[in-house]
């Protein structure tokens, strides 16, 4: 990465493609779940890379490059959310939910509905909780890395993640209510039976 950065700073713009290839999907997915709209997520991803390019000279190696780029990404997303809130835009369309292989059509529909409901609850979380939830469960960052990205203590990361999940558990009781004969994940969600490998 050091070599790539040096090349970009020396004027080799093509070398920047390496950084884009490596982080494009991660930043896009983070932005997608933070901002909700596909178009916004694409714009935010582009904005993040432009900022990275412009500020590359200021990157210091004390921080990991991924931490630095995630910091720019989360700030960009949070700025956009603030702007969206100001403009009071209507949100909620433009989602596509991933399906897992080997499911029957009924299960796919049901799983997607459940995922949509869960995503709806994630969207309703306060920004400071949602960002931590995404950095941990989607981006696979450790508590320490999240603390570095958000410039907060590791303890604060733990507390916020715990509160985020407590809120989700409170709001999503339908996912594992005692009244149900079987929990959803064991009946109709084969994709949930096995914990997926850490992303990236």
């Amino acid at each position: 990465m050091k070599n790539i950065i040096a090349q970009v700073l020396a004027g080799n713009t093509e070398a920047f493609a390496y950084i884009v290839n490596r982080y494009e999907a991660r930043i896009y997915n983070l932005a997608l779940r933070m901002l909700r709209h596909r178009a916004d997520a694409q714009d935010a991803t582009q904005e993040v890379f432009i900022k990275v390019f412009r500020q590359l000279a200021h990157y210091r190696e004390e921080a990991q490059f991924s931490t630095w780029i995630y910091r720019i990404a989360t700030n960009t997303c949070l700025d956009r959310i603030r702007k969206q809130k100001r403009e009071q835009r209507q949100v909620g369309d433009g989602f596509v939910f991933p399906g897992s292989g080997g499911e029957t059509p009924d299960c796919i529909v049901e799983n997607r509905q459940l995922e949509e409901m869960l995503l709806e609850e994630i969207r309703a979380l306060p920004d400071k909780y949602r960002v931590i939830l995404l950095l941990y469960h989607q981006q696979g960052l450790s508590y320490k890395e999240i603390a570095d990205v958000l410039n907060i203590s590791v303890q604060a990361v733990g507390t916020r993640l715990h509160r985020a999940k407590a809120l989700l558990k409170k709001r999503c009781k339908w996912l594992w209510s005692e009244e149900e004969a079987e929990p959803h994940d064991s009946v109709c969600m084969p994709g949930y039976a096995k914990k997926p490998d850490r992303l990236y």
Binding site: Q42, T45, L118, L134, L168, M189, P196
Partner: peptide, 29 residues
């Protein structure tokens, strides 16, 4: 908690970046 973790990771599973986004980024760069 573990069940919620599995459901979160499934619901938040990453999807590939849209086609053309990379080109759009590189063009802006």
């Amino acid at each position: 908690e573990k069940r919620l973790n599995r459901q979160l990771e499934s619901a938040l599973a990453p999807e590939p970046a849209p086609e053309g986004l990379r080109e759009r980024i590189m063009a802006s760069i």
